[in-house]
Design a protein around this nucleic acid. Structure first.
Lengths: 212, 212
DNA sequence: CCATGTGAACAAATTCACAGCA
DNA sequence: TGCTGTGAATTTGTTCACATGG
């Protein structure tokens, strides 16, 4: 069974649905209709059904969806059945924050390495692991099974560090550096660009009140 | 002159173009064609022209675009002609990181307030301002001219804090809390949901190599 | 009878292809 | 001639409306 082509928008909505359904499941709501879910969380009922339709049939006609069951199903679809391992590269403000955040007993993602080349950072511990130089990258990825690289280096160093990550065998990258990466086709890469988002808000500020 | 309706995608690309053009301008490249820009930064030449077309004509036929001039023009379009003021709410790992980051002499955005209700946080200084309780929010916004609120509180507190921000007169919100906010139509709001992005990457991991 | 799942209609965004100007 | 600016064509994504099945 080869998985279908699914848009980023659909995948991101599945994450949202997962969160909503988890809440309902925790509240011991047994079943929910797409309409009720949409009303409660300000979503589109049709879109919810269409998004799921990419992957199969999950509901019961005339009834709705089993909340806890669907949490399991969507978790599987997204590949969240087991914990994923991250390494964070760049121990600036943001890198430290992310390392600390994902060093707790966070369910789905866990930091297994913190890297930086600055001599005054190496050896410090922001989470469970102390900071190591980038020369250890390849062995960390291989030995600790890191799958996702979190890039939190300055813009100027981002491309070179990205290339190192790919070369070292990382399987995906979440980039926080405010720069446009030339990325390897085989390594899925997402960008979080806080500057771009703030500038979008600024546009709306200067034009008048608007919606998200 | 009432501004046109522009999609989020277009606005975000304008921020990217701005960054690319700034680089070219700094390198003293005088003019650039849409094709050359696209080639160098892996963008779409047609899309670049179409995006600009929402706002007017900026190029010279047969020649291309004046790099430094276009930096100015796009900055104006996005409302970046003056510095914008932020307040950060929630001094957890991420809130501290963001406060520090935007407390430097960052050109376009500057933190003018750091808020948290935790007694052990109040009074600490992570940037130029020490942490104040949320009860000061309204006066900080009014007296220091804060326009954008950066929400970095736990998910459980996000909606209540968002409502407080709106009530206190904030003009836009950048939300880092992993939750779906019911937002006021008049206050543009953007979400940065790191969990959603990591889950998208995880999907691609489990399915096979893919692109961003 | 109710809510799902889905083809068909619609809307939005992207890409093509070329007219028109420097 | 070269590159912009833009209608027209195409692709992609969303919404509608209803047949289908529990």
């Amino acid at each position: 069974m080869t998985e279908p082509e699914v848009s980023t928008a659909t995948l991101n909505r599945l994450s949202i649905y997962l969160r909503c359904l988890r809440e309902l499941c925790d509240e011991e709501v047994k079943t929910v209709s797409s309409r009720e879910l949409a009303r409660r969380y300000d979503l589109s009922a049709t879109q919810f059904r269409k998004d799921l339709a990419h992957f199969g049939e999950f509901g019961i006609r005339g009834v709705g969806y089993d909340t806890c069951g669907l949490v399991q199903r969507i978790s599987q679809l997204l590949g969240l059945e087991r914990q994923r391992r991250l390494i964070v590269i760049g121990m600036g403000n943001l890198g430290i924050a992310l390392t600390r955040y994902f060093s707790g007993d966070e369910r789905k993602f866990r930091v297994v390495g913190a890297l930086d080349n600055a001599a005054d950072k190496i050896g410090l511990a922001f989470g469970r692991w102390s900071v190591e130089p980038l020369s250890h990258m390849k062995s960390i990825i291989a030995e600790r099974g890191a799958e996702i690289g979190v890039l939190a280096v300055p813009a100027a160093a981002a491309q070179a560090t990205y290339d190192l990550l790919v070369e070292a065998g990382i399987q995906a990258v979440l980039n926080f550096a405010p720069t446009r990466l030339r990325h390897d086709r085989r390594v899925p890469t997402k960008n979080v660009d806080i500057g771009v988002l703030l500038e979008e808000l600024t546009f709306h500020l200067s034009v008048g009140r608007g919606r998200s």
